[in-house]
């Protein structure tokens, strides 16, 4: 296990070094990434220019949700975002070589691509987070701090699991890759807003079956000390670590099943 982390660090380190070599290109890329994600926040600002509350949420509270969703998504994108290129990898026949190496295929795929330029999005989300925290009055307790901090890796794991499950489609059809976008990019957009604005079926499907509600909605409710507009049991606000673990497990199983199919049905 330690050895796996070590290899992962080496793989990522080598890629960072290589990507930083092209400073100009990296800067331009990062600049572009920053602005494209900033649009989402601009939209929130535009909305709140027209109303003072979205359901019972103020602009600062929505900004807080936005920041959490955006930062965790950007980190996930940085770590495994190149998974969007996975269908191409299968098409080129470059997956087979992973099967000849003495490591799990999922580990190799995830560790092989690291996109440093996405760090600009993390930066952008962080700026919004600072803005949100400075304008909100949060009654901090140790538990609230813990819930907030723990929700970050939890959210990353949830997004990662969605991404991995989506990538598995490539084992069956190589041009269906865009399906995943609906849940990854769609997922982060959805999580930027409070869940009570969505209709029941949408909430159930994309909030609980695909557990996007646990990315930041529930942890935020607890940290902000807000009563749940949906009137759901309070213990859900602490569940993100458990949900993340279950999501990871499901993703691992789906991947394994997909690889088994690939190995019996041929490339």
């Amino acid at each position: 296990m330690v050895d796996t982390v070590f290899v992962w660090r080496k793989l990522v380190g080598a890629q960072i070094r290589s990507q930083l070599q092209y400073r100009m290109s990296f800067a331009l890329d990062a600049f572009g990434s920053f602005w494209i994600s900033f649009i989402d926040f601009l939209v929130i600002l535009v909305i709140f220019r027209n109303v003072s509350r979205l359901n019972e949420w103020t602009v600062h509270e929505v900004a807080f949700l936005y920041a959490l969703s955006s930062i965790t998504f950007a980190v996930t994108d940085m770590l495994i975002g190149q998974l969007d290129q996975f269908p191409q990898k299968i098409r080129d026949g470059n997956f087979d070589i992973l099967l000849v190496r003495p490591r799990g295929t999922l580990f190799q795929v995830i560790a092989s691509d690291f996109a440093l330029r996405r760090v600009a999005r993390v930066l952008q989300g962080s700026i919004v987070l600072v803005y949100a925290l400075s304008t909100l009055t949060i009654h901090w307790t140790v538990l609230r701090a813990i819930v907030l901090v723990v929700s970050v890796p939890g959210a990353i794991v949830i997004f990662s699991s969605i991404w991995v499950v989506g990538a598995c489609i490539a084992f069956w059809t190589t041009d269906g890759g865009e399906f995943t976008n609906a849940f990854t990019y769609g997922g982060t957009s959805m999580a930027q807003y409070p869940f009570d604005i969505y209709s029941t079926w949408l909430r159930r499907l994309l909030g609980f079956v695909i557990p996007l509600a646990f990315v930041c909605y529930f942890p935020a409710l607890y940290v902000l000390g807000k009563p749940d507009p949906l009137g759901l049991p309070r213990f859900l606000e602490f569940c993100s670590p458990v949900v993340a673990a279950v999501a990871a497990l499901v993703a691992g199983l789906v991947w394994r099943f997909a690889v088994r199919h690939y190995r019996s049905a041929g490339g």
Partner: peptide, 8 residues
Amino acid sequence: ELLRHIYR
């Protein structure tokens, strides 16, 4: 180097 680590 990377392969060295992958293959231990």
